[in-house]
Design a protein around this nucleic acid. Structure first.
Lengths: 239, 239
DNA sequence: GCAAAAGTGTTCCGGATACACCCATGC
DNA sequence: GCATGGGTGTATCCGGAACACTTTTGC
């Protein structure tokens, strides 16, 4: 309900979007951060963000911001939470709507825009961050863990073709566990989400491991149902 | 990241909060709506809402709004989603941060404030609603279903003392199923969340059914873990 | 042949499900 | 005694979990 209402003179309220962009490679989960070139907080590492424009929705704004930094269009993007502590931005009252994004790190090309100095950081070795951005990342990491336990979200972080060992390593990173090889294999194949290719990855072993890819149809069908995608889901918790 | 930025002259951006307030009685799930006394949309039913004040967080604003309408303080409240379609409010650009609240309908007292004309509506027979409020309710209903399947959230809708049949009926309403009496009983007792009282409810049967209450300690401990709280959770989906 | 990763088999156990059955009581 | 909801028992089935085993191939 919008009532007639004005913020006190001088109390502008800004609405920002910040994106927690996750990527994954053999060495683990990563977050993409940018170096801030303006005050306040100049020189600090921060999440990529921007302000909401008058003629766009928040989803559109988040996508716009993501494209500016990565040039990537078909990216998994989901609203996370609004951060609205009164003093979170020391200069102006700004609330920030956070989104988390999952991208295939290998499709990411550096220097899409020279306006931003961007770098991938391992999730376990983050630098000091702007404002409440560290909280945002922690929150996003938990949400990823939670959601990945129930929905086939992990694939968004991998290339088109991947081996089951790569997939399992990814899940190990997300859940911070060591999943059983055989059980993981059976579980994930039983889900019916994967199509086996007749091509092998020989880089990691002599025998070679078959590549798999997502069955897009099944993926869309099953995305919103509960899928028990991890053992000991009982131990996963939220917030 | 806040950059130096101004909305075009005349393009004020307002931040509103709208609360989807759920209640439950023997006849099913209910939502609390208020009749709007101001334009735009005067005379229409709407979610209870308000604007974000300069010196409060969104959580605080949501709680403030809930207290204005219901007078209730200890209420389950959770951020749901931000609605930001450009034209959702025909007069001013307003984004709305929605919260869903679960209250014990029997503690709700009418006429806390005579400023609002409030009424409970059955979730399945809603009137025409302001702006995008119908979408908000649909979204909230799904979220409730989703969350209640995994976390012991349902109790928030019941009185302190309740029988297992009452609890089962509540879950039947939420999930739109008919749960098996015996299995539900075992499942819910096995969760360890309930304490049996030595008092019986004789209103529904001659034999009488024991009242139970939440074990607050266990409840807090287990709230964030995955608890399979419903059969056929496989069939629950999201969005 | 051996190491190393891929992939398979097998056993065990507990929980979900279906459904039949007793229990207590007011009329 | 009988109808009504409360509450218990139990056989079955399936999937998770642990872990041992076989396969393939480069060196």
């Amino acid at each position: 309900m919008s009532e007639t209402y004005r913020y006190p003179h001088g109390d502008r309220l800004l609405v920002a979007i910040d994106c927690i962009i996750f990527g994954y490679d053999e060495t683990g989960l990563k977050v993409l951060l940018v170096k801030r070139h303006i005050e306040p907080g100049k020189g600090q590492w921060a999440l990529m963000g921007g302000l909401l424009n008058a003629q766009e929705t928040l989803d559109e704004a988040a996508r716009r911001i993501l494209i500016i930094l990565t040039g990537m269009h078909d990216v998994y993007l989901e609203e996370l939470k609004v951060f609205s502590e009164v003093d979170r931005d020391p200069v102006e009252r700004t609330i920030s709507v956070t989104y988390f994004a999952l991208i295939n790190i290998h499709n990411y090309e550096h220097q899409i825009s020279t306006d931003y100095e961007a770098r991938w950081f391992s999730i376990s070795h983050l630098p000091e961050l702007l404002f409440d951005h560290a909280h945002m990342i922690t929150y996003a990491k938990n949400k990823l863990k939670y959601k990945a336990a129930l929905h086939p979200i992990g694939f968004e972080l991998l290339p088109e073709k991947f081996t089951l060992t790569q997939l399992r390593n990814l899940y190990d990173s997300i859940f911070e566990t060591e999943l059983d090889k055989g059980n993981f294999r059976r579980m994930i194949l039983a889900s019916g989400l994967l199509i086996q290719l007749w091509e092998k990855d020989k880089s990691a072993s002599k025998k070679g491991a078959y590549f798999y890819q997502l069955d897009e149809k099944k993926y869309k069908e099953k995305f919103n149902s509960f899928l028990n995608l991890t053992p000991n889901s009982k131990t996963i918790s939220w917030q």
